[in-house]
């Protein structure tokens, strides 16, 4: 059988890579703020909205920022593709 690569899989592969990169960024953000700001002595902590700065940036801002990044990724970079194979082939033949 001749191997023709389904174009929808290329879209999907790209999106899987984007999702993985976003997860990596998410980890870096979470780690850098938590241990970058949180490792100093507690006495020297600064506070934002009552929370220690490390916690605010890592967990609260991180949650909001990455929810927005997911929205941006999905809205602007993810493509809509048909799922039913017959449907798609019909569309292509006409």
């Amino acid at each position: 059988m001749k191997k023709v690569k389904d174009w929808r899989f290329r879209v999907s592969n790209k999106e899987a890579i984007m999702g993985t990169v976003l997860a990596l960024l998410n980890f870096v953000w979470w780690y850098a703020f938590a241990y970058g700001l949180g490792s100093q002595p507690v006495k020297e902590y600064t506070y934002i909205l009552g929370f220690p700065a490390w916690f605010f940036y890592s967990c609260i801002a991180g949650f909001i920022v990455f929810t927005i990044l997911v929205w941006i990724m999905v809205k602007f970079f993810f493509k809509e593709v048909p799922f039913e194979t017959e449907e798609m082939e019909k569309e292509e033949n006409h």
Binding site: S12, N13, E15, G19, T20, A23, N26, F63
Partner: peptide
């Protein structure tokens, strides 16, 4: 421990993105 629990944020999008449309 809240910091640890926030590792779960990624489950919200990662599974669907990686398994994906394929």
């Amino acid at each position: 421990w809240v910091l640890l629990a926030m590792a779960q944020l990624v489950t919200g999008y990662f599974t669907l993105a990686v398994l994906g449309k394929k």
